[in-house]
Write a protein that binds this DNA or RNA. Sequence first.
RNA 1: GCGCCCGUAGCUCAACGGAUAGAGCAUCUGACUACGGAUCAGAAGGUUAGAGGUUCGAGUCCUCUCGGGCGCGCCA
Length: 555
Amino acid sequence: MTPDQLATAIRHALVRAIEDGALALEPAQVPAEITVERPRNPDHGDYATNIALQVAKPAGTSPRAVAELIAVRLREVGGVASVDVAGPGFLNVTLDAATLGELARSVVVAGESYGRIDRYAGTRVNVEFISANPTGPLHLGHTRWAAVGDAIARVLEAAGAEVVREFYINDRGLQMDKFGMSLEARALGTEPPEGGYHGAYVDDIARQVVAADPSILELTGPDRWAAFREAGYALQLQQQKDVLDGFNTHFDVWYSERTLHSSGAVERGLARLREHGHVFESDGAVWLRTTDFDDDKDRVLVRSNGELTYFASDTAYYVDKRDRGFDVCIYLLGADHHGYVNRLRAVAACAGDDPDVNIEVLIGQLVKMMKGGEEVRLSKRAGNMITLEDLVDEVGVDAARYSLIRYPVDSPLTLDLDLLVSRSNDNPVYYVQYAHARIASVLRNAGDLGIDWRGATADLSLLTHERETALLGLIGELPRVVGTASELREPHRVARYLEELANAYHKFYDVCRVLPGADADVEPINVARLWLCGAARQTLENGLALLGVSAPDRM
RNA sequence: GCGCCCGUAGCUCAACGGAUAGAGCAUCUGACUACGGAUCAGAAGGUUAGAGGUUCGAGUCCUCUCGGGCGCGCCA
């Protein structure tokens, strides 16, 4: 029995109590969600629910009395071994061993699809993240989003959503020109202009550009730096794509800001906003009245000199996404952009959408790096800038991704490079991966012993050891973890869950011998435990896949 | 000045309004001549920054104070 099935059984028990007249409650007062959770304390059974505490007040009686009414009816349900009323009115449910054990079989049978749910079936989601200028390498700030954004996309997919990962290329405007002029300057051996780009990578790209086409130096005037700009753009963008590819983060759409303008999307976007009546003119400029929807000031779309603002691109881009059929547009932005939240939400509202439904702006705090006990200051001046590439070179893709994903993004994160580099259990990713490798080893050994556990008849009711039931219970949690992680857009919950699961496996392994000892026959308990191992391995693999982290058979 | 985020063990951090606030690291003590010791068992470590409030119940929600990070252009 899965936790969801138990929740349904509890609901039925509650409804029956109402129908029997034992409980004075309107059907409408039954909560939409019945919370079933695994108690921290094993004495509290396999599962616990607080439903009695929730409905006691509207029912006009005490929580414990309600709990008793539900308990009596729940005990009749097949697979339920016992139901206790505890504390202020919690219901503690214990399943019988066979019912719990069968979970192992169903997980192994489900394979890679275990953990997938249909909560967001039919929902099209656009997840936009990183969206850097193509004027330099991706740095540490981008890296957090590369890992977390991709994990959010994976979790949403597991929850049934149709997800597109999108990277908005800021390839238009003054910064690009400065980039071109900086490249030109370095190629000519002069200093980049005021506000230009510095660092070794600028020299590298300049060299590459000249090497690819030496005739570029024969150009003059703006033609020359524009040519450097275009050639450098192509190289830098490709470099970003390659690095992200190596980071196991693959974008479905690379959306160029230039394309947005050349395609007429900007005009269409402005037209849409005018239709809804939130555009006005003042002081020779065109404005969007975002203050109609919680923004603290109105925003300029077209400057009095006729030029479009960056904000105009933003609005058009949003409208374009919606026109492409996305129900939800998720933006992942750094904390230094949190001032954009209200205006982006206002854009959605001005376009006639519901900002609470169609747009979602997630703000992530910045990452700090410690090395040798000191903070590594991040600066675009090359020397101490940490790039995504640097991080991966130092600690590897799995450790880098995992370390960035395992913390909620709304709190600032401090990473200690020294700890990450050491391949010890200081980094929990190894703890989780080790559990997977350990199981893989056991299963290999079973094969070497000629044990065909999947083909044998197994009595899974033998899995009654406290460590076995604890492990089974946690294995059963994956679908619900996917549910909360996807709903809250918090993939760190998956990582935390995997650590718990790995811990439960190690504890089980420590006291429960899986394979028969030397010269011993294969007993039913060996087969049952192999099923448990198979289920645990599959759950770890599926969970790690949600994070884009590998599940190695050997380490 | 206004706004957003944060403040939990020595350190890095968990905890969809639930039961005795949990892990890892660091410190101390233990455990295999059988499946991977990158493991497991145990000890120690807390006024959840502070003060009020909401309710059966608050680290979590509301108000205020203190402390830290960030943001407030017809810039991109």
